[in-house]
């Protein structure tokens, strides 16, 4: 066998061997990696609904984006039934675009359910506002925000958060009775 055939052949054999070993390792590890990823992603949402088993990310339309909503998802339980919706909000308040107020808010059974603060944007006003929002009972003031209403003459931060939450509420109320069960 002359050199012109021998060298590429040798390289090819080595390449195929290595490719085989790699795909074998991939076969064993890929499933575990994917399962861990899903578990990590769901952990943030299990705080809202402790019986969450599946979730489906939904495209946010323009109304939501204008209100300050970043992402939206439907939560389903073990039996693939719809539990509620979770929205991620990034509201631009007094501290400006660089320091938005970030939180996730969930709705269930036709009303606000729970919210988790992700960041109040390094602004003391944002922090104070989130404390005020909690009220005396957790999430108390949240459930009293009327859908689609923004208060005039109030602080920039309050208006931004109010607009975001009421946009979510309006969006949720419009569709929550008609969301189908979970399919892959």
């Amino acid at each position: 066998m002359n050199k012109l055939i021998k060298l590429p052949l040798f390289l090819g054999v080595v390449g195929c061997l290595c490719g085989g070993v790699l795909s074998l390792t991939n076969y064993f590890t890929a499933e575990k990696i994917k399962k861990d990823e899903d578990r990590r992603a769901n952990a943030a949402y299990i705080i809202h609904f402790s019986n969450l088993a599946h979730r489906k990310d939904v495209q946010v339309n323009e109304t939501l984006v204008n209100g300050g909503i970043v992402s939206k998802l439907y939560a389903y339980d073990e039996s693939n039934e719809y539990i509620g919706s979770i929205y991620t909000i990034s509201a631009v308040g007094y501290a400006g675009k660089q320091n938005p107020i970030k939180f996730t808010i969930s709705f269930s059974d036709g009303k606000p359910h729970h919210y988790v603060e992700l960041g109040h944007g390094e602004s003391s006003q944002g922090a104070a506002f989130m404390t005020w929002l909690k009220g005396d009972n957790n999430g108390d003031r949240l459930s009293n925000l009327e859908a689609g209403k923004t208060e005039t003459g109030s602080s920039i931060t309050y208006s931004a958060v109010n607009l975001a939450v009421s946009t979510c509420l309006a969006d949720y109320l419009a569709e929550y009775t008609s969301i189908p069960a979970y399919t892959e």
Binding site: L22, S23, N26
Partner: peptide, 9 residues
């Protein structure tokens, strides 16, 4: 669909 493991090589 061999991206994840063949990429480096």
């Amino acid at each position: 669909e061999m991206q994840s493991y063949l990429e480096l090589v």
